[in-house]
Design a protein around this nucleic acid. Structure first.
Lengths: 311, 311
DNA sequence: AAAAAACTGGAATAAATATTCCATTCGATG
DNA sequence: CATCGAATGGAATATTTATTCCAGTTTTTT
């Protein structure tokens, strides 16, 4: 009778707790533990059943909660919580909590030192891996990067960035090496607006010359990630000396590019095999362009004349 | 018997429930704190800068980490971490950590999922849409594209593509307009191998001239999507006339580019607001490069000289 | 180059948190 | 309804974790 009621309670809470879309994960330690708890549930003393219910309901938060919070939440004494953990073969609450903690610890790959990256590659032993497997793994890293982009999305900065571009007279774009392709995309896309656009490409080594005429009503879009390209930093410095606005797209608010930034868009890419993705960065830039296009009240037709826009 | 029922309830709900990190726009305490840290960054002592960097990078995990973990991660002594927190007006590390903690627990309650927000955005129609909402919508489209890339992944073609490149003498790369940035990325990446690489960029309108010397041991990587750029098609035609191999990256096996292809990699991008993403294409190209690099048995040193590879 | 100021890290101390102990209560069973 | 075993919660203890102190060092200033 009580059991009956119990299972209903469980069902309801679970339905409520459901969170946003999630990528597939392996059957975790937490899942297994929950399973064990469920199996033994009926054999548990009354208070420990309360603890079980609470843990199930709060599974996403247990990692943060102290014994006393759990105890209070479950309406029992702290020692009951400890005994609960011990019944499931943990030395105490702390050890049980570790299961929940390790589950959560987020995957943050980037910004490793060069040495660390090498070590990682060697450990992973990619030489025995099929190309297709490597590809899938890399795609997955990119997906993780996009998830992060969506999850950490900073609406305020993004809208500031759009505003900056709306008000800009001429838009300069600079990035070098790995990020250059991003700059070239932005420059291309912006051609579809009525803004004047200048891609600072360093052709003939003329960064200085190309930046020469930037002025206070202009905006420089600068894209750079560690280890920051000196050309990009140089351009950002020139821009701020000329009182132009700088829209920085970079990894951190603390890198050298951030110093010159009027608006800062942060992107943390996923990585695999010590190799950084570019997907999140380009996605952000495309989103920026789409938002700008609508803000400028362009119709889609104007932005993308059929037969010309794509490719 | 009741046990049975109960555990079934668990199993079912567990399979359904996904409790990943919630996706929400953050203008929150953490974001504000990051802002303050970034502002003061330059004025910080060296060790505290390390702490700042570490905190920024690990912002999602700080809530779980003890002072010592943070200290170790940042490569400093625990007391430096405490002093860091105190500089930002907290009584100590614990108080600062609370900011990160409360961020997380707050996210569980409002539970308005990313999907829900998107749905609402669509209902509202783009005209009244905030830039940030549009951005999220676009990011979501990109994610869908990547999901598709992973789901429909054709291992055979991919490995053929890698083989083609391994055997190539000189690699030519061509794409125009929207896809040009992809070509420029590929050309850049391939510079890190020992292959000769030529980006057919049409500078001065010289497509014909740049393609002139392609030969039967060479490979042309051609990237094009509807409506296909005539320059790209032209190059593909020349390549096949010269008996060179063509690696085509395109949308369908029936487009004009497929006709000339030795190997065909299909990519279907996501799109939003009648605007196509580029994420899947670039992701595929990066995967291609990673796989190629290892196939060529490059050491990491050769591929990524320190201070030069990134950006 | 000397003096002052700021920074650092080991060790002591303080605080918090978790665990155990034990006297008491509860509830099942004969 | 008396007895026993299990469960409970207050309080003592142990442990872990955070903070402060201080002496030595480095960095900056003059």
């Amino acid at each position: 009778m009580h059991n009956m009621r119990l299972s209903v309670t469980f069902a309801v809470t679970n339905a409520t707790v459901t969170n946003g879309p999630e990528r597939m994960t392996k059957s975790s330690g937490v899942e297994q533990l929950m399973q064990r708890i469920a199996e033994q549930f009926d054999a548990l003393p009354r208070q420990q059943q309360n603890v079980a219910r609470y843990v199930e309901e709060q599974r996403a938060n247990i990692m943060l909660q102290r014994v006393n919070e759990v105890a209070e939440g479950a309406g029992v004494h702290a020692s009951a919580v400890v005994r609960f953990a011990q019944r499931f073969d943990f030395s105490g609450y702390s050890e049980m909590q570790a299961v929940f903690r390790s589950e959560h610890t987020a995957q943050v790959a980037p910004a490793r030192s060069y040495q660390q990256r090498i070590r990682r590659v060697i450990e992973d032993g990619p030489e025995q891996m099929e190309p297709a497997q490597m590809a899938l793994r890399f795609i997955d890293a990119s997906r993780a990067g996009l998830d992060d982009l969506a999850g950490e999305f900073d609406a305020k900065s993004f809208e500031d960035a759009v505003d900056l571009l709306v008000k800009a007279d001429t838009i300069y774009v600079v990035a070098v090496r790995r990020a250059f392709s991003i700059a070239s995309y932005i420059a291309y896309a912006l051609q579809h607006t009525h803004k004047r656009v200048l891609l600072v490409n360093g052709l003939g080594g003329m960064y200085r010359e190309q930046m020469r005429s930037i002025g206070k009503n202009d905006v420089l879009i600068a894209i750079s990630f560690p280890p920051y390209g000196k050309e990009t930093l140089y351009c950002a410095r020139i821009a701020s000396q000329h009182k132009a606005k700088v829209l920085a797209i970079t990894e951190s608010g603390m890198g050298p590019l951030a110093r010159h930034a009027s608006v800062l868009l942060k992107v943390r890419e996923g990585s695999a095999f010590a190799f950084r993705a570019l997907t999140s960065t380009i996605c952000l830039c495309q989103a920026l362009f789409v938002a700008l296009a609508y803000k400028l009240e362009l119709t889609v037709e104007e932005t993308t004349p059929p037969g010309e826009y794509d490719d």
